[in-house]
Amino acid sequence: MEVRTIKVFTTVDNINLHTQVVDMSMTYGQQFGPTYLDGADVTKIKPHNSHEGKTFYVLPNDDTLRVEAFEYYHTTDPSFLGRYMSALNHTKKWKYPQVNGLTSIKWADNNCYLATALLTLQQIELKFNPPALQDAYYRARAGEAANFCALILAYCNKTVGELGDVRETMSYLFQHANLDSCKRVLNVVCKTCGQQQTTLKGVEAVMYMGTLSYEQFKKGVQIPCTCGKQATKYLVQQESPFVMMSAPPAQYELKHGTFTCASEYTGNYQCGHYKHITSKETLYCIDGALLTKSSEYKGPITDVFYKENSYTTTIK
């Protein structure tokens, strides 16, 4: 009895394709271990004539594949690729409408935090270190965002349907971005203890939790000093293409032309909904596939993004 075979390709990165001759009487799992086709788990399936010449994702289970996976995804987590594939199996079914010149995501599976993050990423200057993220990001900007969303979920250790947080998501993504040249110098002034300067680099240099107003941050924000008295913390120097200011959701007025974009969060910790506000020729609110415009805006804002380049204080 002759062994019926077909020729397929296996890959971990969709760049390096490895030619395989597979036995049609055995499952993919018996031949390769966990195997995925377009995100779908085909591990328990036997090869079919229609699979001839198709590319299958496999887990990096030998040295060659491990090197290829690390170079593309910059992670050695053995569960990463499987999590990416199972997320992709959902995100490829989502709709990605162009809204006001940006790629958004039609609401499904509690994905409003991903839509808000995706919209924000198209408006701030950011370059990702893992080629996987950078490639998928370019495709997302062009309207094909399924891979990018699935990668975000995998890097953030999230599953489809789980509630997510924009600030946490951005923080994970910033860790995989090139923020080497970003720098922030802060000064804390206390009447009792004097003053202390701190220099922050990388992710810490672009994120701040405690106030939404970048102007206020430049002037000074009140913080408790270690001595128990009130101290003032203010920005001395900022070198970065953008800054992200966050605070627990509270009524906040966004003035046209003073910011790049913002995240609105309605609801409580267990259950809520994100919308995205962007400042173009007027203010726009993007909620999944829905767009509304207004000249002014007041609502429960939790993150505001500002364009920056270089700032030095005039406070002496």
Score class of each variant (00 low, 15 high):
11 T>E: 06
255 K>V: 15
179 L>M: 07
97 P>H: 12
293 K>D: 10
176 H>N: 07
88 L>G: 03
197 Q>D: 07
200 L>S: 10
199 T>L: 07
283 L>T: 07
276 H>N: 06
216 Q>R: 09
96 Y>P: 05
125 E>L: 03
200 L>G: 02
211 T>I: 08
50 S>L: 13
109 D>K: 05
67 V>C: 15
281 E>W: 00
277 I>R: 00
163 L>T: 15
137 Y>T: 03
241 P>T: 09
217 F>N: 02
90 H>G: 11
222 Q>S: 13
299 G>Y: 00
230 Q>W: 14
62 D>V: 07
107 W>N: 05
190 C>H: 01
174 F>C: 02
189 V>Q: 08
302 T>C: 09
106 K>S: 11
115 A>P: 04
293 K>P: 11
113 Y>D: 02
205 A>E: 00
105 I>Q: 04
179 L>R: 01
274 Y>E: 00
51 H>D: 14
183 K>D: 03
210 G>W: 05
185 V>L: 06
274 Y>P: 00
205 A>L: 00
100 N>F: 06
159 T>E: 14
251 Q>C: 13
184 R>V: 02
316 K>G: 15
93 K>S: 11
124 I>L: 15
104 S>M: 08
93 K>D: 13
178 N>P: 04
215 E>K: 07
173 L>K: 02
307 K>L: 12
213 S>F: 00
119 L>W: 02
26 M>K: 13
262 A>L: 00
36 Y>P: 02
117 A>Q: 01
214 Y>K: 02
20 Q>R: 12
194 G>L: 02
11 T>Y: 06
151 L>T: 02
232 T>V: 14
197 Q>L: 09
236 V>A: 10
138 Y>I: 14
291 L>C: 11
271 C>N: 07
248 P>W: 12
283 L>A: 00
22 V>K: 07
311 Y>W: 10
59 L>N: 14
15 I>W: 09
57 Y>T: 11
113 Y>I: 01
292 T>R: 10
170 M>S: 06
50 S>C: 11
63 D>G: 08
35 T>H: 00
138 Y>N: 15
156 C>Y: 03
289 A>K: 09
58 V>M: 08
63 D>L: 07
19 T>G: 13
122 Q>G: 04
20 Q>T: 13
63 D>H: 08
139 R>I: 08
132 A>H: 04
209 M>R: 15
100 N>M: 09
59 L>W: 09
27 T>Y: 09
99 V>G: 07
62 D>W: 07
187 N>I: 09
62 D>K: 08
